[in-house]
Design a protein around this nucleic acid. Structure first.
Lengths: 188, 188
DNA sequence: ACCACTATTTACCATTTGGTAAACGATTCC
DNA sequence: GGAATCGTTTACCAAATGGTAAATAGTGGT
């Protein structure tokens, strides 16, 4: 919980009363490995903050292959925000890649914060925009070759390399797992 | 100007007084082909709205190659928003790919709107988030092959195919221009 | 320890893409 | 008109990546 507050305070300052309100509205949720935080075809109902563990977003392409769209590591928001806001069905799964611990806000609680805390909307938007921005900044660059993409992945997500299956990383980087295995070999 | 107002009203409703204020704060700016709206190494000073023309964002990678990061077509915001907000230097160039007509807000004017119009921040954030989201949703998908990426590019940006040089599209899609030329040949 | 299951590596060959170079085409400038 | 410049296409070969298949390594359950 303190981790969540510390995260939020990066985006603005709050009084003790406001902090207490946030603590009231957030609840802790454990997600065993493999479980879903939200699913394709459903309307996202919660905003999460990842305290511990690794999550990933993925979808199925037209060939039925599972494609990892993003990894989420500690101290980051977990939500398909556009669809959460618009009350529309998500097109991706958000799944716990390892056992996870999150702080979650239900939609009513999340909206209550906007009404109750002056300046919350501002902070909230900064958070969301930063998370969107980081996702694109840390993501693989299409103009680089596969080896460079893998090296940058390691640099951007040093903690993930040995925590998630190679196949997830491969589809994230846009290569087959055979190619990624070859690349791993070639750089050691 | 009316085009700008119409765009803004998608994100909330405004009274006539507020609309008039926005009209006061925005000025029209012509950008000849090849000119820059903002440059790498400089702090972005304006928010633009593209009325007519095509712009693109690009940067130089470590090999000195020019890489197109995004295309911007009519009725969209033109700004490196994260750096505009944070007053930090941009890492990319925003250049007019064809002759362009924009409505622009200086930073003081943009901030004035937040103070003067209740609900403006909300609308502003929706705009920015939508533009960020669109950019990623319309962008090339790394797990697809080059031909599919080109076909989806045409579907997402039908008006651009014959308005921008092949080399720009190639670096945007992460292929060499020779490859893209081959792909063009193979699909006709 | 053994089995079943999953993840990763390796091998082989086909296909795609890149690098270098040159030819061709279109446009601009004098 | 002609030179210069830029954009596009083509060709050739090398390198990277994919597809299929199988072998190996690791993991968890009994």
């Amino acid at each position: 919980m303190e981790q969540l507050i510390e995260f939020i305070l990066q985006f603005g300052s709050l009084g003790q009363q406001q902090i207490d309100l946030i603590k009231e509205k957030a609840i802790e949720r454990q997600l065993p490995k493999g479980d879903y935080f939200s699913e394709a075809g459903r309307i996202p109902a919660q905003v999460g903050f990842l305290v511990e563990g690794v999550m990933r977003g993925y979808y199925y392409n037209s060939k039925g292959e599972e494609i990892t769209r993003c990894f989420i590591s500690e101290n980051s928001l977990v939500v398909d925000y556009m669809n959460f806001e618009a009350n529309t069905a998500s097109s991706e799964y958000l799944q716990a890649s390892t056992a996870c611990r999150l702080m979650v806000f239900s939609k009513p609680n999340w909206e209550e914060l906007s009404r109750a805390i002056v300046g919350w909307d501002n902070m909230k938007n900064k958070m969301v925009q930063l998370c969107m921005f980081q996702k694109s900044r840390k993501g693989p660059v299409i103009s680089q070759d596969a080896t460079t993409r893998y090296l940058e992945f390691i640099a951007n997500y040093p903690s993930l390399m040995n925590r998630v299956p190679l196949a997830y990383i491969a589809s994230y980087l846009g290569v087959t797992q055979q190619s990624l295995s070859r690349i791993r070999k070639s750089i050691r």
